[in-house]
Nucleic acid binder design. Structure first.
Lengths: 217, 217
DNA sequence: CTTCTGTATTTTGTATACAAGTATAAAAGA
DNA sequence: TCTTTTATACTTGTATACAAAATACAGAAG
């Protein structure tokens, strides 16, 4: 009956996790830097117990490394780490694309096309931030069309690890143009429900991402 | 100088995580059942703080679900969950196979062939348990030959989720024979360093796994 | 001046106490 | 008899106190 009450129903744990995750993604907590418990718990206004539990989930997600008896650090990705993530992500999204063509409804496809057109608008207006946000959603939603929960989970996890790096790598304007072109190809294939072509376009998009990103590592 | 001392250097956290994980995989903690903190901490001889931290990492790994204010349960997989895991695992191992052919040394390939032959020995002796253990290692090691850390991590995670189910599904003897044949095909392709063929063989192996397992869900 | 060693300080790890929320069951009302 | 209410026990969530380990530092020996 009352639908508005449930919104604040996130546990403290989840809140701490996502706040610390944001600090990492935004680069406020720098890769490789030590995470000072006492400072952060004061800033977040929580006590050590829930904070340390949050660190454990972030560690399992791969964003943080807990060194026994000597604290935690923000995980720092090597060049080869990032390459390996993109290699896997490319294949996962390729699979997602193929499955999406087989399993998504016309309605769902149209919604994604609409999202793509919104992104085009931001691109033309040179409005980087909302484009970036919608881009994340584009990939998540396309993956969701695969109707494969495990695939979505793995994609989300790698996406989270790459978020910070991607944000840095997309600074150059010509890189942006290339990314938009890739998306265009993906949308064409999706409309035609050509799974092989969509899969290949998505894999190509990820390979291009590596080219865009690799020099900043 | 002293190499033997480091072995016991696992943190309490890691110990609790792997002990509870084992309890889940072995089915002592049944899927869907509530995890009673007070009982388990007594059994494990640890206090609530480290135990709850362990639950958080197990939750992030996907083996446990923490329901806010009402405890934790062992995650229970639906039929479609398992299908989606195998769908993803199939593609990941396909990729692993292709990369292994491109990146593994002759030495590494020979080691894996040797492992395969050990498995054949256990199969012929009808010795199920050691075969099962080596099978896990076979897939892990083959994936490791891809030299892709992210791929290994994702494979390990899905493998852990499936472990319990796989163990149940492999009860039938004719299923076992099929699995051995699949491995034979993989080894042939690996020796020839035929990436496409190895990838296809691994994907096929996973599809066969689904056929073996699906009826017990 | 460097290196080693012992002590002090800081930080992390674990246990426990207290608070808050949830489920259970008995009692009151319909 | 069935529903609703309310009291109680139990479980979980959070804070804090204590223990243990690591780090930093100062002084002594080489």
């Amino acid at each position: 009956m009352n639908t508005s009450i449930a919104i604040t129903n996130r546990s403290l744990h989840d809140q701490v996790v996502s706040r610390v995750r944001d600090l990492i993604i935004e680069g406020i907590l720098e890769p490789g830097s030590r995470i000072d418990e006492s400072t952060l718990i004061e800033e977040l206004g929580v006590s050590r117990t829930p904070f340390r539990e949050a660190l454990r989930t972030l560690a399992a997600e791969g964003l943080v490394i807990v060194k026994p008896s000597r604290g935690s650090v923000v995980r720092k990705w090597t060049r080869s780490d990032v390459f390996s993530m993109l290699e896997v992500l490319g294949h996962l999204e390729q699979l997602a694309g193929e499955l999406a063509c087989a399993r998504a409804s016309d309605q769902e496809i149209n919604e994604l096309v609409a999202l793509h057109e919104d992104m085009l608008g931001y691109y033309k207006a040179n409005d980087r931030m909302p484009y970036y946000k919608l881009n994340q959603e584009f990939h998540s939603r396309l993956t969701a069309l695969s109707k494969n929960a495990t695939l979505q989970e793995m994609q989300r996890n790698i996406q989270a690890r790459l978020k910070r790096i991607r944000y840095i790598g997309n600074e150059k304007p010509d890189a942006w143009a290339g990314a938009v072109q890739d998306h265009e190809a993906m949308i064409v294939a999706l409309k035609a429900k050509d799974g092989k072509k969509l899969g290949e376009a998505m894999a190509q998009h990820i390979r291009n991402t590596w080219d865009r990103v690799k020099d900043s590592l």
